[in-house]
């Protein structure tokens, strides 16, 4: 009985890893069943289940909220998204990030030149170094 390796990973964790007989996933263009020695393929996934048939015939299913499915003759890789992604949702998130930045800038009281900040930081670093030195000498 031929088998294929299957990795399901997301940016945050490894979800599944093992040898399987078959992988079923819902690709963007329709349901896909991947058996061993499938031709190399790459597709986007729709939110839905990824089902794998293990060597002993058991089935396991995982929910993915989209992602990428990559097939190579010996290995199937599912790069799962960790959140529901859509163009307008992403744009809303970007809008929020910009808004937060604008709010921060609106709260600006006194604006400092870069050089000034650099000098202050250098001072702080020097103080830290001096403390470190002091501690070393005190130890003896």
């Amino acid at each position: 009985m031929s088998t294929i390796r299957c990795d399901i990973v997301s940016a945050e964790s490894e979800i599944f890893q093992g040898t399987v007989k078959m992988v079923v996933a819902s690709g963007e263009m329709g349901e896909l069943g991947i058996a061993p020695r499938h031709a190399p393929l790459i597709t986007r996934l729709k939110p839905g289940q990824v089902r794998v048939t293990l060597e002993n015939g058991d089935e396991q299913s995982f929910y993915v909220s989209g992602g990428i499915l990559e097939v190579q003759p010996q290995v199937v890789t599912v790069l799962a998204d960790t959140a529901i992604r859509a163009k307008d949702l992403d744009e809303a998130a970007a809008g929020k990030a910009k808004e937060d930045a604008e709010k921060i800038i609106a709260n600006r009281t006194d604006v400092m030149e870069i050089a000034e900040a650099q000098a202050q930081l250098a001072q702080a670093a020097a103080q830290l170094a001096a403390l470190e030195q002091l501690r070393k000498t005190l130890k003896h």
Binding site: A83, R85, A92, K96, A101, R108, T109, M112, I114
Partner: peptide, 24 residues
């Protein structure tokens, strides 16, 4: 406090940061 162009910001990611918080 700096004279730079701040175009985006996210804070309070917590102990378990998620990718979703970074998308924006």
């Amino acid at each position: 406090r700096l004279k730079v162009n701040l175009v985006g910001s996210v804070t309070h990611m917590g102990e378990k940061p998620e990718v979703a918080q970074l998308i924006g």
